[in-house]
Nucleic acid binder design. Structure first.
Lengths: 161, 161
DNA sequence: AATATATGAGACCTTATTACTCTTATTAAT
DNA sequence: ATTAATAAGAGTAATAAGGTCTCATATATT
């Protein structure tokens, strides 16, 4: 398996939305800036998350993303596999044709059980656990200092007179 | 982590050599044919295995590869990491610069422990265990039937009159 | 010594994937 | 109607994977 950038961004996005809380609408721009995800790339990633039923996308002015599920009901595995497909460690298991007698191969069995173990581990981690603790995404207060002069045209600076 | 083809081939090569036994010389051609590994690619892979001290490469006529270590002392992890470097699951851990406050990130800790778990699993599997059972590489007797008309110029066909 | 038979080492090539970006819709608030 | 947002998907540059090819080197055999 390979954790792609898209998957890492998806996790960050979900951590951010989980912090905001279930049902809270957050703009793509805000997530993009705070969680440090390329804006357009996030749009693409969000589509996958929406298809998987994790978030709802609201179009139009004041649009954005809304976390649909309870963070406690979303596992890390679910988000990861939404982005990269079902986890596998070796080609043989994903594409049995690439190996000859895979059904009774000792090496295969090792990879299979290692894979199962990994998936179980990731399945046990939920997003309410992940937001309980500090994470790579800075908290709101911290960010405001740093992200003030962003790459975006004109961030709306909340405390402007 | 990503199990590359080179790593899969390396495992097959080591399974084959382990079956032959420690200290037994086997030609690259034979391994290539029997374990279904592209001949020249195997040469490249063998160099890595040799550098890691797993096999010895004997040059010249009647050259080939010799398993140096006892199969019971070679772990699957060792062979895999020889080929793809130390296993990691996410970029953040391999390249801490790609994340901001990695040292106290909940997501990181999950990946780190999943990674540790995976490496431990692979470390516990040794090649004597792998050859005790059937594998993807056909046994000698089986192969002779199938590989008879190979891509090579003139295989020496042991039962020719 | 000469020759045939192996592998070594590394340059080179092709294809696939990653990680984005860009453009043209579409949707909703004002 | 206008403006502000996202949708959807095509397009693109960079990187890596997976081999192949060539020339050099080493060794057994004659």
């Amino acid at each position: 398996m390979r954790l792609t950038r898209a998957a890492e961004y998806a996790i960050r996005c979900m951590v951010y939305l989980s912090r905001q809380g279930q049902g809270v609408l957050t703009s793509r721009q805000e997530i993009s800036q705070r969680a440090d995800i390329p804006n357009h790339f996030l749009a693409k990633i969000a589509q996958d998350l929406a298809k998987a039923g994790l978030i709802e996308i609201r179009q139009g002015a004041k649009g954005g993303f809304i976390l649909i599920k309870d963070p406690a009901a979303i596992s890390l595995l679910e988000v990861v596999e939404t982005m990269i497909g079902e986890i596998y460690l070796n080609d043989c298991i994903a594409r049995p044709a690439s190996c000859k007698v895979h059904y009774h191969c000792a090496v295969h069995r090792v990879w299979q059980s290692a894979c199962d173990q990994l998936r179980t581990t990731l399945r046990q981690v939920t997003f309410d656990q992940l937001i309980a603790d500090a994470s790579c995404i800075p908290l709101d207060q911290e960010t405001l200092q740093v992200t003030e002069e962003s790459e975006m045209t004109e961030p709306p600076g909340p405390e402007r007179p």
